[in-house]
Design a protein around this nucleic acid. Sequence first.
DNA 1: ACAAGATTTCGCACAAATTCAAACACGTTC
DNA 2: GAACGTGTTTGAATTTGTGCGAAATCTTGT
Lengths: 276, 276
Amino acid sequence: MPRRLPDKHAPGGFRPLARQRHIHILSQLAAAGTVQVGPLARDLGVSEMTIRRDLVDLEQEGRLTRIHGGALDTGTNRRTVIDRDEPLFEARLQRQHGAKQRIAAAAARLAAGCKTIALDVGSTTLLLARQLHGENQAKIFTNSLRIAADLAAHAAEVYLPGGRMRRDEMSIGGRTAVEQFQDLWFDIAFVGVSGITTGGIFDYSFEDVDMKRVYLRRSSIKAVLCDASKFDRMSLVHIAPLSGFDILITESPPPPHIAKALAEAGVRVDIVAGAD
Amino acid sequence: MPRRLPDKHAPGGFRPLARQRHIHILSQLAAAGTVQVGPLARDLGVSEMTIRRDLVDLEQEGRLTRIHGGALDTGTNRRTVIDRDEPLFEARLQRQHGAKQRIAAAAARLAAGCKTIALDVGSTTLLLARQLHGENQAKIFTNSLRIAADLAAHAAEVYLPGGRMRRDEMSIGGRTAVEQFQDLWFDIAFVGVSGITTGGIFDYSFEDVDMKRVYLRRSSIKAVLCDASKFDRMSLVHIAPLSGFDILITESPPPPHIAKALAEAGVRVDIVAGAD
DNA sequence: ACAAGATTTCGCACAAATTCAAACACGTTC
DNA sequence: GAACGTGTTTGAATTTGTGCGAAATCTTGT
């Protein structure tokens, strides 16, 4: 039989040991996210069957996920397969990212020193949560699993209500959840909206509105986070009139008629200057 | 065979003995991370058998890890590419991964068709959750945020209790949480443990035990997931006696005295055959 | 959109090659 | 001569490669 292997008994060139192959595979995986059986076999100078056996081993160790033709990084797997809706959410996180980041930063300054903080579901509030990593003596209440998971690694005390989880937003809603939070009292609450008009604030999510109302009803400072794209936009559900909250944090001045209505309702408007 | 050693067997001096070879092996190891028997034998001018004996010695001293064909630096073994945000949890997920995976698969078969499923906190139960992605008409109850997040993208209805989140495990515990689940009734509950003896099952986490007890009290089928490393290990908190659950799913037969106690307690033992 | 065929990939089974470890032989040192 | 380290032989264990049928994926045609 003809030898297809590159000269393996060359003095300097060692043929790959099982463990060396494993390391090579994992590093390729870390670099590219995926590997294929064919190229790996060529790179390492062994047969495809051997590569397959390596992949089986590594999968059993949980280091990768095998697929037809190769394997995926477990991390990549998590991004692509498990979080099917993540692109959606990530996209929303990217949209107006600069503005949201500045709004979140301003909100974090407002929350400094507060002992009990309520955080609504949403991309802006998630950014806010990340700014709160330092506030390790505050109790933070949220119905967003994303926010809770993000805060978990840090010093804050996090509390969640119980109930059914919404798939797309990874939030907890429903009667039970509302009941659990409506007896509490927060120093400050941050609520996201999907629209604001002279008539009040709106959201497109039916399920989350009840919780937003609780946040606004049960806190000393009621802050609404809202980038400029939300002005004059109505949405599915009316959350509250403009008099239902105290502070609006946004990144550019609202149109005159809304500014006037806000002033009449006694709402303080914080505008964070935009650099870009 | 011609002697390739530089003749150091001069009468007064010491010979190139084990000690020198060991040093050479270790320095090679430090440089490359791995060594192979053949090249070492050639470099040092000794037989492969001698190298093997050296490697055995060095392994006994804990300086390296022997593998087929050579040896690995003890550090290289571990120092691969994974380190994500949760070293602790990820590490636990890796440990005994094959066994846990098989246990999870068996558990998933057991849960097939159940309408209400309770999942405890833990790495094995997380793997089980991933196997339940198909069960989209089941309601799944869990106090683990990790499990909830993992199931979010898929078809299941997921319910969480409310309460304070534990940072390390990302689980929800406390009186409130327990109260919310203790009025429910589950078709089947899966509980993880950190130890099992003739006296019952144990866990090291003070906070999660109450919830485990609720799961076991409030379900028709009470299943305990347990890899073989847990046998005869006691832990901080006693969860329940052996009579407190119905099925033990494990990957290798328990030692005789535990098997006897399990039989007397009426516990069915499911052993999932190990392939590796 | 669905089904049939073509192509690739998979994984089992067995053979070949490599590696391991035990047992014994040899040489050196004390 | 006993103790020790090393080399060699030999049979077992491990690993790897190849052939081939089965399964999965892709392509094509209607």
